[in-house]
Design a protein around this nucleic acid. Structure first.
Lengths: 250, 250
DNA sequence: CCGGATCATAACGTATACAATAGGGAGTCG
DNA sequence: CGACTCCCTATTGTATACGTTATGATCCGG
């Protein structure tokens, strides 16, 4: 019973520091910090899909009671990052093939359509900011720091969506990017990250030039190439769970 | 001070029956029923924007403790249906002008794009189902039962999105429709409901004929006409809150 | 008579305690 | 020797209790 659980525990206890472990309880701000910590850990693949998230363990790690942990867990469940099984507890969501397809279709639809608005509204400061984010992502990739690279990549896409001015759609994109990270964790190749080439840098230049249509088509190719790089074999009726169980840390 | 609050209390206690008040607690299924009840009440405008949702009152009404109510309230807050002020409690969200614009832009983008998929995948049974929903909406409108009409209208749009086969985007549309109901409650005219004409029925026939592009453009006109019917005066820097406070039940 | 400060109350935020349930292990029977 | 059953434990679901804080009223001073 220790093998599968150990994975989650080890990954979790690997970084058991909370932002403010002080005795003060200013409000529910601390809960939001815990939410960000867990969410980031999931996006960075430090918590892999299928990892169990026991309330007691999380409460102990973050120094709060189960009450706050439950709130965070339910919020993550609403965003489809964790799956809540009625009496079994929470675990990091393992996206199905259909879910993966839905998420990428949604990203294709929303993110491409947003490019035109972004191209119209983008400022020079935004361009500088995006260039910096793309640069840091490339630097992380060069250093083989895949965790940081994944986080920067997701942040880039979210930042881009925020520049559209539509906060509602930006929120959707944020969720979709987080779920995409889960999908990459399950169906992506080990050494092959999603955005390897200099796609993001090229995208920034297109937007800086005000070429909204060009950015949209580029984003379409970009997302499709990521989706195409996934190892999605249509085998829903076989025994996919067993394959994962026998190769837990693959 | 009592005028604005009284509205919420009265509307709430107007219907204090829960789906299953039995002594049995099978799981968190009861919580989901409470969530649906509150969500439906908000969508049907029985809980108007700005109405305060006190935890104790809700707990008393539904016969559960504050714990479950808190979960429901936080879930509704995640969907932007209620607003949680740190130490002030929960209240039905009063969408701002910018939020309204974002929501309708998002609907325009997503729902129109979904029409093509729907036209390809729709079956005869789906057509019959949609026709029935549109018919019931028209019947409710004819009887001047605006609450039921609003609910049926939102259900129609959600059902349509579900037929696209993309559950992720369908979930987004569901959220957007709920928020649209809030927007209509704030910025819509009293007697003028959103989908008055036989737009939905026409839409069904276009989809039944497999005309995805036609349905998309029709949906575009449909949503734009709803948005155009709103009384959105661009006065963000004025004192919009005061105007609403002085005309609570307008 | 008006403005400000203090205090009381009411509501939320958090923690703790109790109860229910599902899963696993050991024991036993066929 | 294998499979089934029963019990035990671990973990979540729910409720209650306590602390904190913001709001509103009252009282005092100017």
């Amino acid at each position: 019973m220790s093998s599968s659980r150990q994975t989650a525990e080890t990954t979790l206890s690997d970084r058991q520091q909370v932002t403010s472990p002080g005795p003060k309880k200013p409000g529910d701000k601390g809960l939001d910090a815990i939410y960000r910590a867990v969410s980031e850990a999931i996006v960075e693949h430090r918590l892999k899909p299928g990892a169990r998230l026991r309330e007691d363990a999380l409460a102990d790690v973050f120094g709060v009671s189960r009450t706050g942990i439950r709130k965070v867990l339910h919020r993550l469940a609403l965003e489809q990052l964790v799956t809540l099984t009625p009496r079994r507890g929470a675990s990091v969501t393992r996206p199905s093939v259909d879910e993966a397809k839905d998420v990428f279709d949604a990203r294709l639809l929303v993110e491409c359509a947003l490019m035109e608005s972004v191209a119209e509204r983008i400022t020079e400061a935004d361009v500088q900011d995006l260039r910096e984010m793309a640069r840091r992502e490339q630097e992380a990739l060069r250093k083989r720091e895949q965790r940081a690279a994944i986080k920067f990549s997701a942040s880039f896409h979210v930042r881009l969506a925020e520049l559209s001015g539509n906060n509602t759609l930006a929120g959707f994109v944020s969720q979709l990017c987080s779920r995409s990270s889960l999908i990459l964790a399950v169906y992506g190749h080990a050494g092959h990250l999603g955005c390897e080439c200099h796609d993001h840098e090229s995208l920034v230049e297109l937007l800086a030039a005000g070429d909204g249509k060009g950015a949209a088509s580029f984003m379409e190719r970009h997302l499709k190439s990521i989706e195409a790089s996934l190892s999605i074999f249509e085998e829903p009726e076989e025994t996919p769970d067993l394959r994962d169980i026998f190769a837990v840390n693959a």
